[in-house]
Design a protein around this nucleic acid. Structure first.
Length: 571
RNA sequence: GCGGCUGUAGCUCAGCGGAUUAGAGCAUCGGUCUACGGAACCGAGGGUCGGGGGUUCGAAUCCCUCCAGCCGCACCA
């Protein structure tokens, strides 16, 4: 069974397609009725008939009998109002349904999501926030609808900087280096390597020689490299735990993983006749890409020095994900500046036959996190801001707010709650605006308990839970859903829209649509509280109102969960 | 120069597969109620939807053009 919206579309489409095959009712929610269908005008146009005439015919078709009534309005809109009995039965069906009407994808798809991607031996900073948070929300939402998610944390664990990093590790001594890395002091380590490299030509020579050893597979060098990787991955895991992100060390499949596949990428492209030599570099020139002189733009897979560019790695990753992991969908949660590069990689992969048209492949691009000055978010001294420090500050502020409010929690619980609120604040602020936009990082606004914020939604949920706790045991199955007034009916309609909100968020890889839905739900709740006292009501009315509260609470919890945000019982 | 993204109320943002009076939050102003959790609710003011053209009965939404900001445009990933 589909959502209420889907049922309406399906039934309306019968009339529409009888008139014009392939036409769409263009069904939307409406302020004037429960739904409105805007597709009549287009149909009337192609038929050359007056729109109102066509609308009247569709209204009289009986397609919505037993479900809703249709009223013709304005130039030819169909205003649709659900029959009370149908509405009630739709709501009753949600009571025993853990997923609240959300149907599982059948058969499940395999979705590979590439996100987070920090660099080994480098601090995680705000630049990684968006990829991590958006990617994790998409992963959770995909799992919620039954898809199999394979997370790929494409960490930067290879390349010329590793010569320098390994030499620095040796200079520090293994023990000291490990100590520095294990406490997450990656900035100090990296900057130490950097300044040694900048200061000493001898160090530079050693670094270059070390790169050669690393690439040549020298066992001792590989061992040292592994130390860097393992320590970093352990640190990343701590950050993910603090953020409540589902990535694990198993999801780390770094650049180095593809090393053995790179030669194959080049030789296969060559065999396909796609490879061209340009200034000594081996390139593919996908159509439609030009450089600043209007000449074809190359995707460089092998550099003049025989080294492989990251395009080769990305192509190998596509092959692995499609060929070995059998992905039905590839999502790359990567910043907008990479748009051209990824578009070229995808284009080449398609041409090479490594990325069939049946596989959805999308660059889930996002804008930057800005500081108060609307420039890239940096510290006053111009350095990047550590992700953990950002989170710690948010936790501290949330904690203080809880203290000031005087909640009767023990300190450990208060800590935990503050952590949940802080995560909610930061994640929701990131997820709730349209991905492609830049947004200004403003803890005050994010942590506010009013307005369109994560904490507000958590609060809306906690408030419902409080009511439900006080109500005690109630047989919600007995709810009749008579929906006696506008606020309760409006709330009910929102509850029925949950599956559509999830579908829409997944379709556009757009978590903000889910945010918008949840915030709208929370707002309808406040209107509902005003008009419908719950605990003071009696009999069937009380049961119905409690049932609405229960459905709303569960919808909020499920929705927040899909975003990676906890829904605490009390606040 | 070419390409991409962004430009909607004082501020932060939805809406952009065209459709009935352009929505929300914050802020401002004015109200409500011994509160099922006042971290509340109700109401008001506030917008040439960056500018200009075009398509259409109808455009914030589609097309063209211009302006502004950010980003990308061959061997660092």
């Amino acid at each position: 069974m589909g959502s209420t919206y889907e049922i309406l579309v399906e039934r309306l489409a019968r009339s529409f397609q009888r008139l014009v095959p392939g036409s769409d009712p263009v069904l939307r929610t409406s302020e004037r009725a429960d739904f409105q269908a805007n597709g009549v005008m287009a149909v009337a146009k192609s038929l050359g008939r007056p729109p109102r005439d066509v609308a009247t015919e569709i209204a009289a078709s009986g397609d919505l009998d037993g479900v809703a009534t249709i009223e013709v309005a304005g130039p030819g809109f169909l205003n649709i109002t659900l029959d009370p009995a149908f509405l009630a039965s739709q709501l009753r069906a949600l009571i025993g349904d853990e997923r609240l009407g959300l149907t599982l994808v059948a058969p499940p798809k395999t979705v590979v999501i590439d996100y987070s991607a920090p660099n080994v031996a480098k601090e995680m900073h705000v630049g990684h926030l968006r990829s991590t948070v958006i990617g994790d929300a998409l992963a959770r939402t995909e799992r919620l609808v039954g898809n199999q998610v394979i997370a790929r944390n494409h960490v930067g664990d290879w390349g010329t900087p590793f010569g320098m990093l390994i030499e620095h590790l040796l200079d520090l001594g293994e023990d000291r280096a490990i100590a520095e890395l294990s406490i997450g002091d990656l900035n100090t380590f990296y900057q130490g390597a950097r300044s040694a490299f900048d200061a000493s030509e001898a160090f530079q020579r050693r670094s270059r020689a070390r790169v050669v050893l690393l690439q040549g597979g020298d066992p001792e060098t590989r061992r040292l490299w592994h130390i860097l990787v393992d320590q970093s991955v352990a640190y990343f895991s701590q950050v993910y735990a603090k953020l409540d992100v589902t990535l694990t060390p198993d999801d780390v499949v770094g650049e180095s993983f593809y090393n053995d596949a790179l030669e194959g990428v080049v030789s296969d492209l060559d065999a396909l006749g796609l490879l061209e030599d340009s200034d000594g570099a081996r390139c593919v020139f996908p159509p439609g890409f030009t450089n600043r002189d209007g000449e074809p733009l190359p995707l460089i897979v092998q550099k003049r020095d025989e080294g492989f560019g990251y395009a080769a790695t990305d192509l190998a990753a596509v092959r692995d994900r499609v060929g070995n992991l059998h992905a039905d969908e590839l999502l790359y949660v990567v910043g907008a500046p990479q748009a051209q590069h990824l578009a070229m990689v995808f284009a080449v992969a398609r041409r090479a036959g490594w990325l069939p048209d049946t596989v959805r492949c999308e660059h889930v691009a996002f804008g930057s996190v800005l500081g108060p000055d609307r420039k890239m978010y940096k510290t006053r001294s111009g350095e990047t801001v550590k992700l953990v420090e950002l989170l710690d500050e948010a936790i501290e502020r949330a904690y203080e707010a809880l203290v000031a409010r005087g909640t009767d929690l023990d300190d450990a619980s208060r800590r935990e709650l503050a952590t949940q609120i802080a995560r909610a604040a930061i994640k929701y602020a990131d997820l709730s605006t349209e991905r492609q936009r830049d947004y200004v990082f403003d803890l005050n606004r994010m942590l506010a308990f009013e307005g369109d914020t994560g904490p507000y939604l958590q609060y809306a949920h906690a408030r419902l839970r409080s009511i439900l706790r006080r109500a005690g045991e109630v047989e919600l199955e007995r709810a009749t859903f008579s929906l006696e007034n506008t606020p309760s009916r409006s709330l009910a309609l929102a509850l029925l829209g949950w599956p559509d909100a999830v579908a829409s968020a997944l379709e556009g890889a757009a978590p903000h649509r889910l945010c918008t839905y949840l915030f709208d739900l929370a707002q309808r709740l406040t209107a509902f509280y005003e008009a419908c006292p719950v605990l003071n009501a009696e009999g069937a009315v009380r049961v119905e109102r409690l049932a609405l509260c229960d459905l709303a609470a569960r919808t909020l919890a499920l929705g927040l969960g899909a975003l990676g945000i906890a829904a605490p019982e009390r606040m």
